[in-house]
């Protein structure tokens, strides 16, 4: 269905408005990333020196080197200036540029997050739709009960339980990592599922899939529960609308009414919820990656917290923030696409 010509301008304005909102959000993230980390007790240089300690003169020298001797506002100014030039600093531990480390680890997180959201969508959408169509049936109560449980379950506990059952008891899935140590896969895209297929190494792809199963389920559980519940309630509301009665009066098939006329409208709130879940997904990724030793950004950040690696923490938080912002922007645009009323009225 072609969009009406006069809506192109409206769409452009919609996009520009959304994009311009990014600037204050970005500054907000830098503020939070910078100051929150400095609220955590512990001196980075002492942590760097380790248990052996460090003599006061060297300590002072390092403080100067890292700029920790300057007033905190000035430090923030310097940090912001560097960030705007694309310089996120170097890890205090590895001396690698933060951006490079992030780039190397990020695909692993994206791969996990994408699989988790796909898992949540593939099961959550149909479950929600069927629950709405069979309202008050056993299926409906079952889905709603399970999703409430899923929503209330702490991720780390859920992950450990799954490992206990599937990995330890039944030995069905590996306990941790992204792929079996037997394989070495040259990172081409960074996504192991694709790289293993490209490498043509036998069994590598299957190994990567096996390693993905449990983390995907663990990370996808909360979004799955939220999506199923939201889809059900949105669908129930839409099915009672007058235009559904009109569709029936036109003699359309039940499938067409549900899958086209109702779903299109029910998806509007669901897409909003999916957008909100993206942020939750990255928070969840930090826990999930730690549980499964998944070599992604989440585990990297947790390690950085223990080492008081300020540049990594600041840079990592900022980069993740930007990613979440970008995804939310895309979701907003998708929202404008499926909801014509948004496109035209603003």
């Amino acid at each position: 269905m072609a969009a009406p010509p006069f809506s192109v301008l409206a769409m452009l304005r919609f996009i520009l408005t959304r994009v311009s909102l990014i600037i204050p959000t970005f500054i907000g993230i830098t503020l939070l990333a910078f100051f929150l980390i400095r609220l955590v007790p512990g001196d980075p240089i002492e942590t760097l020196a380790g248990e052996r300690g460090i003599d006061p003169a060297r300590h002072e020298q390092l403080r100067k080197e890292y700029g920790f001797d300057k007033p905190i506002i000035v430090q923030y100014g310097i940090y912001l200036a560097r960030v705007l030039q694309g310089d996120l600093g170097k890890s205090m531990i590895t001396q690698e540029p933060v951006l490079n480390e992030f780039r190397a680890l990020f695909p692993a997180t994206v791969e996990l997050a994408l699989c988790a959201i796909l898992f949540a969508l593939i099961i959550g959408l149909p479950a929600g739709i069927i629950a709405a169509l069979r309202r008050n049936s056993i299926f409906d109560h079952g889905v709603m009960g399970i999703s409430l449980t899923g929503y209330s379950m702490p991720i780390f506990w859920w992950g450990l339980i799954l490992i206990l059952i599937f990995s330890v008891q039944f030995d069905l899935t590996p306990v941790s990592g992204r792929i079996d140590v037997l394989y070495y896969i040259e990172p081409t895209t960074g996504f192991l599922l694709i790289d293993t297929l490209l490498s043509e190494e036998e069994g590598a792809f299957w190994s990567a899939v096996q390693h993905l199963i449990l983390p995907t389920i663990v990370l996808g559980t909360v979004p799955l529960a939220v999506i199923a519940r939201m889809t059900r309630s949105a669908m129930l509301e839409v099915l009672g609308e007058d235009y559904i009665r009109t569709a029936k009066a036109k003699g359309l098939s039940r499938l067409r009414i549900v899958a086209l006329h109702a779903l299109r409208n029910a998806l509007i709130p669901v897409v909003t919820v999916i957008g909100l879940q993206i942020g939750v997904l990255f928070t969840g990724a930090i826990l999930t990656e730690t549980i499964f030793s998944w070599p992604g950004v989440g585990k990297w950040l947790i390690d950085a917290i223990f080492r008081r690696d300020y540049p990594v923490l600041q840079g990592g938080a900022l980069l993740l923030g930007v990613v979440v912002m970008g995804v939310n922007l895309l979701v907003d645009l998708a929202y404008g696409l499926i909801n014509p009323r948004i496109r035209h009225t603003r």
């Binding site: 269905m1 009406p4 609308e241 007058d242 235009y243 009665r245 009109t246 569709a247 006329h261 299109r264 409208n265 509007i268 499926i338 909801n339 014509p340 009323r341």
Partner: peptide
């Protein structure tokens, strides 16, 4: 106003 589907032309 409510008998037509808001998402379709």
């Amino acid at each position: 106003m409510t008998s037509l589907n808001p998402s379709f032309t």
